[in-house]
Simulated assay, not measured.
Amino acid sequence: MKIRGRKSSFIAIAWVLLLSVFLGACGQGATGGTGDQSGGEAENGLQGKRIALIMQLNIGTFSAQYIDGVRDQVEKFGGELQVFNAEEDLARMASHLDSAITQQFDGILIDHGTPEALDPGIRKALEANIPVVVFDAAIDIEGVTLVEQGDLLLAEQTLEKLVEDNGTDANIVKIWVAGFAPMERRQVAYEEFQEKYPDVTELAAFGSATSNTALDTQSQMEAILRQYPNKGDITAVWAAWDEFAKGASRAIQQAGRDEIKVYGIDLSDEDLQMIQDPNNPWVASAAVDPSDIGRIQARLLYKKLNGDSDTPDRHILKPVMVTRDDLPEEPVTMSNLQEHVEEWGQSDDVYEDWMKELEEQVKGE
C-alpha cells in the first residue's frame, strides 16, 4: 500500500507540472508569441535571425550602398546577414538560392535575377517556410513580396527633363540593356516617350552589363562620338543606369564635346561628384536612395518573419529627380543630399512601431 501511495503522488505532481506548462504556453500565445497577425507587436524571437541576400550582380557604388542598407537594418534588428554574389551567372544565382535553403537561413532577400532561374528555388524556400522578398525581378509567386524602384517614373522623369532642357527635336543616344526587369520597365517608358515626342531622333542605342560596365560603356561611347564627330550631331545621352551614365560622361568629357548633356538613372556618392562638376556632361539623374531600398526590403522580410498578415505583395518606391542646379558648389554626398533635395533621405516606409521597439531591445543588450 505504501508503494502504491507514492506512485499516485508522483502521477499527481506530473499532471500538475504538465498543466502549468500548457497554461504558460497558452498565455504566451495570447500575448502574441508568434507575432501579431495585424502587424502590431514583434516577437522576441526575431532577434538572431540569419538572413541571406542573393544578388545577380554586385557592381559599382549603388550595389555597395544597397548592401549597406540591408546590413544596417538587419543588424539593427539583431540579425546576421550573408551576401551571395552570383557575378551575373544566373545558374550560380539559382545554386546560391538552393544553398541558402539547405543551410536553413531564416529569411531570403533576392536582388535581380529572372523567373526562369529563380522560381523553382523560391517555391522550394516557401515550402520550407522561409519567407522571400525580391528587389527588381519579375517574380510572380503568391506569398513573395516584390520591391520596385518605380522604374516607369524614373525613366519618365529623366526623359521629360531631357526634352525640357533640349527641346522636342533633340538627337539622342540611348544606353540600355535587355534582360533585367527594371530595364524592361524603363524601356516601356522610353517607347511611350518616343510616341509622345516623334521629332526626337534616336541616333544610336547600345549597352551591356559586364563586370566593367562603366569602362565598356566609355569605349562604346567613344566609338559613337567618332561616328558623329561634329558639334551639334548629338544633343544628349539618355542612360538607363548610372554605370552607363558614368562611362558615357567620361567619354564625352575626354573628347571635349561639352555641348552634349547626359541624363541618368540611379545615384551614388561618385555620381554626385560628377553631376556637381561643371565640366562634366552629366546634369541630372532620377533615383531612389539605394541604402533606403535595402532597409525597406529588409523591413518587409521581417514583417513576414513576424507573421504580419498586412505585408504587401508589392511595394513601389518613389524616385526623386536630382539636377546640378539643385546642388551647391561644395561637395555633396548621399548622406547629406537631403539638405539640398528635400524629398531625399531616410524613408519611414514600412517602419513600424514594433520594429523601432525591436531596435531598442537590440541596442540595450
Rank of each mutant, 00 (worst) to 15 (best):
K2I: 10
K7L: 14
S9R: 15
F10S: 10
L17P: 03
L19Y: 09
V21A: 14
C26I: 10
Q28E: 12
N44Y: 10
K49H: 08
G60H: 14
S63C: 11
S63Y: 05
S63Q: 11
D68N: 14
R71H: 07
D72P: 03
Q73G: 00
K76M: 08
E80P: 01
E87S: 14
A91G: 14
S95C: 00
L97A: 06
A100W: 08
Q103S: 14
F105M: 12
G107M: 04
I108S: 00
E116I: 14
E116H: 02
A117F: 10
G121P: 03
I130F: 09
D136A: 14
A138H: 06
D140E: 13
T145W: 01
L146N: 11
V147T: 03
Q149E: 09
Q149H: 04
E156Q: 15
N166I: 03
G167C: 04
K174V: 15
F180A: 09
M183Y: 10
M183E: 13
Q187N: 14
E195L: 04
K196A: 07
Y197E: 01
D199W: 04
E202G: 04
S211D: 11
A214L: 00
E222V: 11
E222Y: 08
L225E: 10
Y228N: 07
T235I: 09
W238F: 15
R257D: 08
I260G: 07
V262H: 06
D266Y: 12
S268I: 11
D271S: 15
Q273N: 12
Q273G: 14
W282R: 03
V283T: 12
A284N: 05
S291H: 03
G294C: 04
G294R: 00
Q297W: 01
R299A: 01
L305Q: 03
D310Y: 13
T311G: 01
T311P: 06
R314Y: 12
H315K: 12
L317S: 01
E342G: 13
W344L: 03
Q346D: 13
S347A: 01
D353A: 13
W354E: 07
E357H: 10
L358V: 11
E359G: 13
E360G: 01
